[in-house]
């Protein structure tokens, strides 16, 4: 899918030659990835491979030291989460990043509150919008006026997702969206990802779960020690080949029979 579209128009997001270092450690070292509308690109790699750091440079949580970010072919600068949001880039963090002491509508609209003519918070309008949003995302969700700390993991996840999709996001970054969820809730999130994909969003999916990756992703970008091992179409590779990329850093053509044996 990527190949046909790229000739017609530029990718939705392109991260070119990104570099991020913490002290002397090169957490992200010359990585280039891209993402098209209606596409899910999985970012995989072991712990410390630099996936989250790479994605933070796009979400504005931690700007890159060097590199270029293009959105629909236009170079953009992203220094803060606010910059990213104004460009339609929304992020669902692994920690969910919810203010636990306030209710769901307040979290959905945190930093972007609806106000009345006089600049007062319009709580009813925010609650109403959140109810409508949840009717679409998670119809069982009913606790709109309790602090989110008293909600279940899946409900909290719904709040985080609602916040990301409400403001007409074009690009969604999901960092381990199913890591803390039970089987039913995981399936619900997967279904939601497919739905958002059909709606034309581009989604960067960070996941440890290889089943998630093969189930949802169109393309898979593998990172190892801050470098990009390679990006492959899901349909062209096997699980073993992706594991070889993650663990050994070898692209499918380079893997030997001994390597495969070593993996098992």
């Amino acid at each position: 899918m990527a190949d046909e579209t790229s000739t017609v128009r530029p990718p939705l997001v392109e991260l070119r030659d990104m570099h991020v270092a913490f002290g002397g450690v090169k957490a992200v070292d010359g990585v280039t990835v891209d993402l098209f509308p209606g596409e899910v690109v999985a970012l995989v790699g072991g712990n410390g491979a630099g996936k989250t750091t790479l994605i933070k440079s796009l979400s504005g949580a931690h700007p890159a030291d060097a590199g270029q970010i293009l959105i629909e072919g236009q170079p953009v600068t992203i220094h803060t989460p606010r910059d990213a949001k104004s460009l339609g880039v929304e992020t669902i963090y692994q920690t969910l990043a919810l203010a636990d002491n306030v209710d769901a509508p307040s979290n959905v609209f945190l930093g972007r509150e609806l106000t009345t003519r006089w600049g007062n918070l319009d709580s009813s309008a925010m609650e109403d919008a959140t109810r409508k949003l949840m009717a679409r995302l998670n119809p069982k969700f009913e606790n709109f006026i309790v602090p989110v700390q008293s909600l279940s993991g899946g409900q909290r996840q719904s709040v985080a997702i609602a916040r990301a999709v409400h403001f007409n996001a074009r690009v969604l970054i999901m960092d381990e969206p199913t890591a803390a969820l039970g089987p039913a809730e995981t399936e619900q999130v997967r279904e939601l990802i497919r739905q958002l994909q059909r709606e034309g969003l581009g989604i960067f999916l960070i996941s440890h779960d290889i089943h998630d990756v093969f189930d949802l992703a169109d393309r898979i970008s593998v990172m190892l020690q801050g470098k990009l091992v390679g990006t492959v179409n899901k349909d062209d590779v096997t699980v073993d080949e992706v594991l070889a990329m993650i663990i050994l850093g070898k692209r499918p053509g380079e893997v030997t029979i001994e390597d495969i044996a070593e993996l098992h």
């Binding site: 920690t95 969910l96 636990d100 930093g111 972007r112």
Partner: peptide, 11 residues
């Protein structure tokens, strides 16, 4: 409630 979340929300 969550300083990090507030920061990430653009506050």
């Amino acid at each position: 409630g969550n300083p990090e979340a507030a920061e990430l929300a653009g506050i």
